[in-house]
Design a protein around this nucleic acid. Structure first.
Length: 510
RNA sequence: GGCCCGUUCGUCUAUCGGUUAGGACAAAUGGUUUUCAUCCAUUAAAGAGGAGUUCGACUCUCCUACGGGCUACCA
């Protein structure tokens, strides 16, 4: 077999918001494709009409685009040579292949009603046997194996509801090589005759995914670990369809787990634990319930990509900050870990902090400006950018430029109680008055000059600097921490600095 | 219950038979920053348990325990 061009796909189903674990799967597929000079495609697996959620598809596309996980082909990315990329639009294709399975005796019609299936399962459970539709139970059910040929024909002609099931051998070891876990083997005696074709004329995931991966020339299937148990089934499908020689390689990714330990990370965990589990905000169209997203929470896309990449993969070096291109260059499947990873909010925050710090002031200032304007305030771009540069070092999230630095734009009316209680004393008003006086006569309002005047005010009132500086900060900004004080003052300007000091003097009384 | 997968500091992980088991986040302590939310330094912190194989096992095998996944006409 000649070397095939690497082609991988991300194939979510549009049943709601794309979970962060799904995003990681998409990312690993993307990294693998780019690393190997291949193609990454987005395919929408909407074979379950009943679970379709409006807006989910758009949400998936928008999320991937926000993160820079750009597909070469597929829905939302200009389609491509293997269109359509939405399984519901490929409906006629699947019938052809499932008929081939029937003709060759590898699949059969089953006419059992849901009630009959339930009854069978309960019967088996009661006798302590595994309740599955398999080589043994199928002989007791209503299908084209047990029914006479003309009866099957009559049922089909009369439009009776039926599904098509894969006919598994009674006892056969099915082996597959997983690129992450090595050889995995399952006996068909443990599997059941999975439905391939539903009564609504749609294929199930199992059939559709195999047929599409074949037709779209997929070389590697990189997906979540939840698919590992059904992978042997897919192997069998490739075999029966005669495609084993071009069967993709499999890599089953470990799952993302809840931070407290039990179970995989799920939709509800995010807002319960105070961090997003979705890339961007999602509003459920039926309940209107809003789930927070990384984007809205102030995460930078590059940070999300970086932190996600490290949840289940590492380069084997001590480097942790990676651009997308660096990830592409470094990524290999064999460095993906086998075990699930718990999401660590602290580490996520740290990653974002790194990226915020490395983002230039003028770009961050644009975001801060939005908040300033949202609050009905007007400041020059230069002022906003300078404020950005001062606040930037202290924050982890872009939105904290405003939440932690809004005192650059609004004079404080409240003052940190703890600091006031601790630092304010009978000498404080005198120091402030001296400072106001000194600053008023200052012609060049620079941080160095301000500091000089501050020290003079201290000396005059016989107060130690260490005891007063934090109090000064609180008088100016209202809060206990922040950037260098005198640089702050320089930005506030002479008039506003003095106004702030006077306000503090008038407001804080003890 | 059955089947499959997994198990190194609190968390993410390095180690591909021989290491004082390394790094990062978080934590604690100290320092710098005349304030702090930055920064620097230091400390504490791990091979689930039991059998093998081997001169030697975190690393290979088996058992047990624990965790996770799957077990639909859902993906």
């Amino acid at each position: 077999m000649t070397e095939r061009r690497v082609r991988v796909r991300f194939a979510p189903s549009p049943t709601g918001a794309l979970h962060i674990g799904g995003v990681r799967t998409a990312l690993y597929n993307y990294l693998f494709a780019k690393k190997n000079g291949g193609d990454f495609l987005l395919r929408i697996e909407d074979t379950d009409q009943g679970r379709f959620v409006p807006g989910a598809e758009e949400y998936i596309i928008e999320s991937l685009k926000w993160l820079g996980i750009i597909a070469d082909e597929g829905i939302g990315f200009g389609d491509g040579p293997y269109a359509p990329y939405r399984q519901s639009e490929r409906k006629p294709i699947y019938r052809e292949y499932v008929m081939r399975l029937i003709d060759e005796g590898n699949a059969y019609y089953a006419f059992d009603t849901p009630e009959e299936l339930d009854a069978m399962r309960e019967r088996l459970k009661a006798s302590n046997v595994d309740a599955k539709y398999d080589a043994i139970t199928r002989s007791t059910m209503k299908n084209s194996i047990t029914l006479a040929e003309d009866e099957v024909k009559r049922l089909l002609d009369s439009g009776a509801h039926y599904v098509i099931r894969l006919k598994l051998p009674r006892k056969e070891e099915v082996k597959l090589f997983d690129e992450i876990r090595g050889w995995v083997s399952v006996n068909t005696s443990q599997m059941d005759d999975k439905v391939l074709f539903k009564s609504d004329g749609m294929p199930t995931y199992h059939l559709a995914n195999v047929v599409d991966d074949y037709l779209m020339k997929i070389t590697h299937v990189i997906r979540g670990e939840e698919w590992l148990p059904s992978a042997p089934l897919h192997v069998l499908l490739y075999r029966y369809l005669g495609w084993e020689d071009v069967m993709p390689k499999f890599a089953h990714l470990p799952l993302l787990l809840k931070p407290e330990g039990n179970g995989k990370l799920s939709k509800r965990d995010g807002d319960r634990l105070g961090f997003p589990v979705f890339p961007i905000q999602w509003q459920d169209p039926t309940t209107n319930e809003i789930s927070s997203g990384y984007r809205e929470a102030g995460y930078l896309p590059e940070a999300v990509v970086n932190l996600l990449a490290f949840l289940g993969w590492n380069p084997g070096t001590s480097q942790e900050i990676f651009s997308m291109q660096q990830l592409v260059d470094a990524f290999t499947i064999d460095r993906v870990s086998k075990h699930g990873a718990k999401f660590d909010q602290n580490k996520a925050k740290w990653f974002n902090q790194q990226y915020v710090r490395h983002t230039s002031d003028n770009i961050l200032a644009v975001e801060l400006k939005k908040d300033v304007e949202k609050n009905g305030l007007t400041f020059s771009d230069a002022y906003i950018e300078k404020a950005t540069s001062l606040i930037k070092e202290k924050i982890s999230f872009v939105k904290e430029l405003w939440s932690m630095g809004n005192y650059f734009f609004i004079n404080p009316s409240q003052y940190d109680e703890a600091v006031i209680t601790k630092r304010w004393n009978e000498k404080s008003p005198a120091v402030l008055n001296s400072l106001i006086e000194n600053l008023s006569s200052l012609s060049e309002f620079t941080s160095a000059n301000i500091e000089e005047q501050y020290n003079l005010a201290l000396t005059k009132n016989e107060v130690a600097g260490k005891d007063f500086l934090q109090l000064l900060r609180v008088c100016l900004s209202g809060v206990a921490g922040g950037p260098p004080i005198f640089e702050m003052c320089e930005l506030f300007g002479k008039e506003n600095t003095i106004l702030r000091l006077q306000n503090a003097l008038n407001t804080i009384k003890k």
